[in-house]
């Protein structure tokens, strides 16, 4: 299968503090990948390297075989909400339409308008079930509703790669189920990389699990057909990879007897 994201020996530091070291990762077309790890372990950094928002100190990042910034129009991004001003004057529809700005001559500058931006934005809002709220002021919405609108913004330009940073933050349980259902459907059309604290995410439709803590380990679900994922919060507190793969009745060789945890 065609690789969408390739990372080879990627290292990145913020000033002197290393955030990621020696990351090798390949994400194939049509996969749904969950990225898991302790806070400050480098999950968001990994996503920003894929998006080209950060440049690696060493190593190579390729998306669709090219440097990430050259293919920014093919990626949809849901960042964490914390950096958005709470009073910004924009309607829900405006926010979604912002997902249509793109690189290229005059494109991002606004002179080249997308054809029917509000029709596209409305369609994306329909996908996340927020069409009734289109005319409302963005910051009138609840945290969970805002999250769905930002997901619509990530989807509006029909990306081939969807990059989601904690899509389930601020989202209540029923909405979270809807979200996972939507992601499973979207998987037919695009590759999805998702950072999540949410363990229930891991039981549905995930092809691989990437554990990130300074370095990245990829657990391929296909190789562990009957594995169920368990998150060991004690390990998370210790700053270790929190995921243990418990396979039933299978003789799996791991570093310790409880399964394939790794430091």
């Amino acid at each position: 299968m065609e690789p969408v994201v390739e990372m080879n020996g990627v290292c990145f530091s913020y000033d002197q503090t290393p955030a990621l070291e020696g990351v090798d990762l390949t994400i194939l077309k049509g996969q749904l990948i969950a990225v898991l790890g302790p806070n400050g372990g480098g999950k968001s950094t990994l996503l920003k390297l894929i998006l080209g928002l950060l440049t690696p100190d060493r190593g190579l990042v390729r998306v669709f075989g090219r440097p990430p910034l050259e293919v920014s129009a093919r990626m949809g991004y849901l960042p964490q909400q914390k950096d958005i001003s709470k009073s910004f004057p924009a309607t829900v529809l405006d926010v979604v339409a912002m997902g249509l700005v793109r690189r290229g001559r005059l494109g991002a500058w606004g002179l080249r308008r997308d054809r029917a931006p509000s029709a596209k934005a409305s369609r994306a809002l329909g996908m996340v079930g927020m069409i009734e709220q289109a005319k409302r002021w963005f910051f009138e919405l609840s945290g969970g509703q805002r999250q769905r609108v930002l997901l619509a913004r990530a989807l509006v330009a029909d990306p081939d790669l969807l990059v989601l940073d904690e899509p389930t933050a601020n989202v209540d349980a029923p909405a979270r189920e809807d979200l996972f259902g939507l992601l499973e459907r979207l998987k037919e059309r695009m590759t999805i990389v998702m950072v999540s604290h949410d363990v229930s995410a891991l039981t549905r439709g995930i092809d691989s699990l990437v554990c990130v803590n300074r370095t990245a380990h990829c657990h391929d679900r296909a190789q562990l057909p009957e594995a169920i994922f368990e998150v060991d919060y004690e390990r998370l507190d210790l700053g270790q990879c929190p995921v243990r793969l418990v396979s039933h009745g299978r003789d799996r060789s791991g570093p310790d007897e409880t399964g394939g945890g790794h430091a």
């Binding site: 001003s85 924009a90 700005v101 690189r103 991002a108 500058w109």
Partner: peptide, 23 residues
């Protein structure tokens, strides 16, 4: 007016705008 979309996206959320290729 010419750079309105870019200004709007960048002031709403800089990281997203950069990820979309806004200069």
């Amino acid at each position: 007016a010419a750079f309105y979309k870019g200004f709007e996206a960048m002031s709403f959320e800089e990281d997203f705008a950069r990820a979309r290729g806004v200069p």
